[in-house]
Each structure stands twice: as C-alpha cells, then as structure tokens.
C-alpha cells in the first residue's frame, strides 16, 4: 500500500502509523460521558471507502486524512488533517 503524503510524495505504508477512524466526531473535553463513550468505543465497520487518520511517523510526522477503500486497499485521497501552518505566533 502506498500513501501519497502531501509533503513527502507516495511512500510505503510501513512509514505510517494508523491513528484511527476519521469519521468519529471528537467531543469537547467537558462533553457528557455518553458522547465520549461513543467516541472511544464505537466504530462503523465500513466496507468500501473509509476516512481514517494516518501519521507519517517515519517521515514528516504530519497526520493525514486518508480515504482508503477497505475492500481493495486503494487509497483514494490523502490530505493534511491540520491544513498548513496555523496563525503566526503573536497574531
């Protein structure tokens, strides 16, 4: 499997770490317990295109949102989770 890292280009999956389902909506830290239980424990077992987080841990270390077809392992897209540098320091 190759993941096209927007910084590093297409790289082998061995350089990446799977960081979980990207479809989940992260609750606020002070959100009710039930929301956190859903977030931590519940997963949809998708057959087909699946949004997920991968970290290029053996490369630029950025987290990517990858759309992967779970039936074929085709990577349909890969983009940064955190788009570009955030606001400049002091702004």
């Amino acid at each position: 499997m190759l993941i096209p890292c927007p910084y590093c280009g297409p790289r082998d999956v061995g350089e990446f770490t799977y960081q979980g389902d990207a479809n989940r909506v992260r609750p606020a830290l002070d959100a009710p317990r039930a929301e956190w239980e859903t977030f931590v424990y519940e997963r949809v077992n998708t057959a087909g295109p699946h949004r997920e987080h991968w970290q290029h841990s053996g490369g630029c270390r950025a987290h990517l949102t990858v759309v992967r077809d779970t039936l074929t392992h085709h990577v349909l897209s890969a983009e940064f989770v955190r788009p570009g540098p955030v606001a400049k320091a002091g702004s």
Binding site: Q19, A22, R26, H53, Q55, R61, A62, V81, R82, V86
Partner: peptide, 10 residues
C-alpha cells in the same frame, strides 16, 4: 502530535 493535529488544530 495526534491531539494537536486532529483535536486542537487551533
């Protein structure tokens, strides 16, 4: 890194 990138990019 995961939390910073995915949870609190701000």
């Amino acid at each position: 890194e995961y939390w910073l990138d995915t949870a609190w990019p701000d």
